[in-house]
Design a protein around this nucleic acid. Structure first.
Length: 286
DNA sequence: ATGTGTTCCTGTCCGC
DNA sequence: TGCGGACAGGAACACA
């Protein structure tokens, strides 16, 4: 479920394992994911030291000492797995005996023997390399709107983007040019939280509701990141898999169940907008 | 310029 | 148990 909070959680999980490490081997088991990998990706990664990890929207950024940054997108089903062989702790590396799982497309071996594996059944994910000083010009990043948890995001920004447009607010919030990082789940959650109907045209939303929506977006994402952080330890302990964790939603996936808003007797309904499921309470979301 | 539908791919789940 | 269909967390792209 990689939306912004999940990518943030993956980034925080990878950070201690990767920062300062050198990629001593890169195994690339197919020529592409959603798009072809960049030319010579294997060679450009091999021997590169990881300076730091970051995130922009749903993109994971791995900055290398070579002057390039590896951009990773998890798509719908991508995940990162950290594989640590106990034998490496004593200095003897036996990582070559690790048997790849199905859909393990890219495997990085770090200097201490840790394996970082990108697994993606549906292959909607992507990887690319770009000079770090040109990162913001990358096609995938250039048009992204503000980070919802950053200083650039505000009710004024949403108001300007919403003004005079007839787009249903659900679609507008999925538009990464307006605000970056929201996906289907957290859009539903934020609209429920701020009691706005997903079908509402953006130009028709009162200022007060836009203020509420702005806060709801921040709170929803903050809560999810907090939940991801708290589940991270346990998840790592289990199997090293990052990117999926238990989190309960207030409205997403709750079709036919009672609305959880205090004093509301509504029933959550599912509708389809632009080919994607929207969950909402028709009673309290206006 | 804006808004909508299609498409990429595999896996899972549900009803018959 | 098998089989078909719906659906899944994204987003580029073609098109009205």
């Amino acid at each position: 479920m990689p939306e912004l909070p999940e990518v943030e959680t993956v980034m925080r999980g990878l950070e201690p394992a990767m920062t300062g490490q050198t990629i001593v081997a890169a195994e690339i088991r197919r020529p592409d994911l959603r798009w072809p990998f960049p030319p010579q990706m294997k060679e450009r990664l091999t021997g590169a030291r990881v300076i730091r990890l970051g995130r922009r929207s749903k993109y994971l950024l791995i900055e290398l000492e070579t002057g390039e940054t590896l951009i990773v997108h998890l798509g719908m089903s991508g995940r990162m797995v950290i594989h640590t062989d106990a034998r490496h702790v004593d200095g003897a590396f036996h990582h070559d005996q690790h048997v790849p799982a199905k859909h393990d497309h890219v495997q990085l071996t770090l200097g201490d023997g840790t394996l970082v594996i990108f697994n993606d059944p549906r292959r909607f994910g992507a990887m690319d390399l770009i000079a770090t000083d040109r990162l913001h010009t990358h096609k995938l990043l250039a048009k992204l709107g503000p980070e919802p948890l950053g200083n650039q995001f505000s009710a004024a920004v949403l108001t300007a983007a919403f003004k005079g447009r007839k787009t249903p607010v659900k679609s507008a919030l999925l538009d990464q040019r307006i605000v970056a990082g929201l996906g289907n789940i957290y859009v539903c959650e934020a609209l429920w939280q701020s009691a706005i109907a997903p079908t509402r045209q953006t130009g028709q939303i009162p200022a007060k509701r836009i203020n509420a929506l702005t806060s709801a977006i921040r709170e929803t994402l903050d809560d999810a990141i907090a939940a991801g952080g708290s589940s991270l330890k346990d998840y790592r302990k289990a199997d090293g898999e990052l990117g999926y964790f238990q989190h309960s939603f207030r409205v997403y996936g709750r079709e036919g169940k009672g609305c959880l808003r205090d004093g509301c007797n509504g029933t959550i309904q599912r509708l389809v907008q632009a080919g994607r499921s929207t969950f909402h309470c028709p009673l309290c979301q206006q």
